[in-house]
Design a protein around this nucleic acid. Structure first.
Lengths: 203, 203
DNA sequence: GGTTACATGTAACTAGTTACATGATTAG
DNA sequence: CTAATCATGTAACTAGTTACATGTAACC
């Protein structure tokens, strides 16, 4: 999960850990919270050891072309980052960039056909522009099938346990409503995707 | 999470681990999967050590009044459980029941005002019939406020980042749609709850 | 007598968390 | 100078997972 998020963000732009965390928190699906430093920094170290990311000189960090934060503070910080002078003593900003190996790993994680949790799927969609159109569509279709399957299962369960009392019944209704909302969204997403992609005739 | 589920299920009926797991899987919200034995059995041991549950004689396990599985296999197993004879050697069924201390712990977890994840909230609702009406309503209202807050936040974010491109924008829409669906469900739940509870005038 | 389903448990691992420790930079 | 914010990291813990090890009971 965190690996996918880090690789996806670094593919767009070189960043240091602290900034990375801020952007992680701003990513959809919004219902999941911010990641902690205690998991972010070890993850960065792990990814660096694996050769997926590498620390670059702090001054190489590109200032955001479109400042996603919109804050003046962020702009000033970016400006200052450009003429930072390396201090003799330890703790200082460490800017990371993605490596070619890391880009491969990102594509693998984006195309991974294993059904994932909501949060990971949201991240896959957030960065799916890096996939080939056919793989992107496959990602959406797989998810659609997964959600459709859950709806079918919920329907079967409803048949089996008709006359369920109060709160349990309400919870089942909620499950079905949420699955139905999600399916409708996926159908829109898929329709838009097909509309945007000129059809590929069979070879 | 698992503690709440175990205590909630054992409050209804004495059960052994294997059966407990089956019911855990059938509980809403359906989108979360089944728990593994590797987390269930240690959890039972922990709860027993804490004095929240205790192992009772296997023959005391009440057969399900309404067989939730609907399977003949389950019915036969329940029948056989009634005339099990203790075998001399180790591994055999171990039926657990909830203790008064465990019932206290269950009520604490049900009324816990700390905002929780989706899965835990679903469990709180699944067992909320054990709460006093006012506490039940408070549980729902807290959740409603939480979701309403997230919707407000999503709206602010939409203002801030208008003209977001393709997939990110779609993900935001999905977030808002799912939050809105959930809010509507909560409103129905709260309305039903108020309708069912004769109003309490201020003392 | 073999297969299948029931049943309990442990060990090693995964993926995160909170709390802590430290230091650098800047605004007032 | 000092408080706030930026920034990096470690240690101990939490809450689960998978894979393994073992045994029981019934079915055919």
């Amino acid at each position: 999960m965190i690996d996918l998020a880090i690789l996806g963000l670094l593919k767009e732009q070189e960043l240091h850990g602290y900034e990375l965390r801020k952007r992680l928190g701003g990513l959809p699906g919004a219902r999941a919270g911010v990641v902690s430093f205690g998991s972010l920094y070890p993850a960065l170290a792990r990814l660096e050891k694996a050769g997926y990311v590498k620390a670059v000189s702090a001054s190489e960090a590109a200032p955001a072309p479109v400042p996603s934060s919109g804050s003046l503070v962020g702009e000033l910080a970016a400006f200052r980052a450009r003429h930072v002078r390396p201090t003799r003593t330890g703790r200082s900003k460490k800017v990371y960039g993605i490596t070619p190996l890391g880009e491969e790993a990102l594509l693998e994680r984006l195309a991974d056909p294993t059904p994932t949790d909501d949060r990971t799927f949201a991240l896959q969609v957030a960065f799916c522009r890096h996939l080939a159109p056919s793989e992107r569509l496959a990602l959406f279709e797989r998810r659609r099938a997964h959600v459709a399957g859950q709806i079918a299962e919920a329907g079967r369960r409803r048949e089996r346990e008709r006359s369920l009392d109060g709160y349990l019944r309400s919870l089942r209704e909620r499950d079905e409503a949420s699955l139905t909302t999600d399916l409708a969204w996926l159908d829109r997403l898929i329709a838009e995707e097909r509309a945007a992609t000129p059809e590929e005739p069979a070879p």
